[in-house]
Design a protein around this nucleic acid. Structure first.
Lengths: 136, 136
DNA sequence: AATTTCACTTGCGAATTGCAAGTGAACAAA
DNA sequence: TTTGTTCACTTGCAATTCGCAAGTGAAATT
């Protein structure tokens, strides 16, 4: 994996050095909100990521500790990707971009989740993160 | 400006279609948090964006209504970029990425702002946004 | 033994990025 | 009035990244 060199000390810039692209956060979304965990499941997402890009991003996310990779219990050729605490801590980021998108793009966010976030943003985010920590 | 076509109905994906790159949010950061407003000021930022990329991103941000462009009062060859409401509503996004970065990258965020956010995140974000609306 | 599933890898053209130099209008100084 | 400077870009080109399509290889299934 080619290494990422921070462009500045700014924490926003630092974050963008890792997740400043069109795909990384979608993979994390799939793990955080859609209960997906395998290469095949990520490939099936609506946005149609290319196979090489997916492999590249999963490699980056693993190399930098956003996710872990383990062999599946049922099949030795299948791998399960799970968010680490570092990955879980990006949940507020994907939620805020999603909330922005649900305002500026009519069709939208899972209605259930959207209304939960509107009722109690902090609590909803916390509950999502706690669920992920139970790696459920 | 080449047009952006949404990859899916997902609001996160929709947001990333616009701001899913390494530069757009840094420009918005400069306007939202660093009180910058001109091409020259954006160029001087620590991350050293290339002139053509900056011009391209400013064009995109203007074309899609994140910022407005007006001639400066003092010089006719100088332009002032200002965040619109659509741009201001990205403040929570840059704050969340910044908070993430300040945890996973030691040197960091403006200490003043960081501690304000730790004390009262919602209030601090709201105050930043209100200040921007007064286009101060 | 043959096929299918799963997770990738490879090759290659197209698009994007990034460096360096150039352009042109407005204003300032000589 | 010419000359230089500031400001905001544009242009050309090499290098990197993206994205499509096809291929590979190990493991499981038929």
């Amino acid at each position: 994996m080619k290494d990422i060199k921070p462009r500045s000390a700014c924490p926003l810039s630092y974050g963008l050095d890792f997740i400043g692209d069109k795909w990384s956060l979608l993979i994390i979304r799939d793990m955080a909100l859609n209960n997906k965990s395998t290469y095949g499941e990520f490939l099936n997402s609506e946005e149609q990521i290319a196979t090489n890009i997916l492999a590249d991003r999963l490699g980056m996310l693993e190399a930098y500790g956003f996710v872990t990779k383990q062999v599946a219990a049922d099949k030795k050729s299948k791998f399960l990707y799970r968010l680490t605490e570092k990955g879980i801590s990006l949940v507020p980021v994907i939620i805020e971009i999603g909330l922005w998108g649900s305002v500026y793009n009519p069709p939208g966010l899972n209605t259930q989740l959207l209304s939960a976030l509107q009722q109690d943003k902090e609590g909803t985010i916390r509950r999502i993160q706690e669920n992920l920590r139970r790696h459920e």
